[in-house]
Simulated scan of single mutants.
Amino acid sequence: MPLRTRILEEGMPGDILFVQGDFGATCAMARWASSRGLVPVYATTKRRAIEKVEGDRVTTTRVFEHVRFRVYETIE
């Protein structure tokens, strides 16, 4: 079943839809969802890099922490 068909069958106006991924597809899906009364959102993160030095070796660990969901703004 195509994704949009399933969303229309199971979603109701005001429902929140998490939309994230390929830039072009994400923009199209957020616009489509918004036009049908859904609330498209995306996740924002806090990113940190932690470096550990041991002699001549450096190990970098990247930490991504969820901050919040944001609603896509509509552009008219």
Score class of each variant (00 low, 15 high):
residue 40 P to W: 09
residue 74 T to L: 02
residue 32 W to L: 05
residue 66 H to R: 08
residue 59 T to I: 11
residue 25 A to I: 02
residue 63 V to E: 13
residue 21 G to R: 10
residue 65 E to L: 12
residue 33 A to M: 04
residue 56 D to T: 13
residue 14 G to K: 09
residue 53 V to A: 08
residue 74 T to D: 07
residue 14 G to H: 08
residue 34 S to W: 06
residue 7 I to Q: 01
residue 72 Y to A: 07
residue 63 V to T: 09
residue 22 D to T: 04
residue 44 T to K: 08
residue 65 E to R: 13
residue 34 S to M: 01
residue 37 G to L: 01
residue 67 V to H: 03
residue 26 T to C: 10
residue 2 P to N: 14
residue 38 L to G: 06
residue 10 E to P: 00
residue 37 G to R: 09
residue 58 V to T: 15
residue 53 V to T: 13
residue 65 E to H: 03
residue 12 M to G: 05
residue 75 I to M: 02
residue 30 A to R: 08
residue 15 D to W: 07
residue 63 V to L: 11
residue 1 M to A: 13
residue 72 Y to F: 15
residue 11 G to D: 05
residue 17 L to V: 15
residue 8 L to P: 00
residue 43 A to C: 13
residue 2 P to S: 08
residue 66 H to F: 15
residue 40 P to Q: 07
residue 65 E to G: 07
residue 45 T to W: 14
residue 4 R to S: 02
residue 68 R to W: 02
residue 5 T to K: 14
residue 21 G to D: 03
residue 23 F to N: 03
residue 74 T to R: 10
residue 41 V to Q: 04
residue 8 L to S: 12
residue 56 D to H: 10
residue 43 A to K: 12
residue 62 R to L: 14
residue 16 I to V: 15
residue 27 C to A: 09
residue 21 G to A: 03
residue 65 E to W: 02
residue 6 R to Y: 07
residue 10 E to M: 10
residue 68 R to L: 06
residue 28 A to L: 14
residue 45 T to P: 00
residue 74 T to F: 06
residue 33 A to H: 06
residue 48 R to M: 10
residue 35 S to L: 05
residue 60 T to W: 01
residue 36 R to Y: 10
residue 35 S to V: 01
residue 28 A to N: 09
residue 13 P to L: 11
residue 58 V to I: 15
residue 62 R to G: 01
residue 48 R to C: 02
residue 26 T to Y: 00
residue 14 G to F: 06
residue 2 P to A: 11
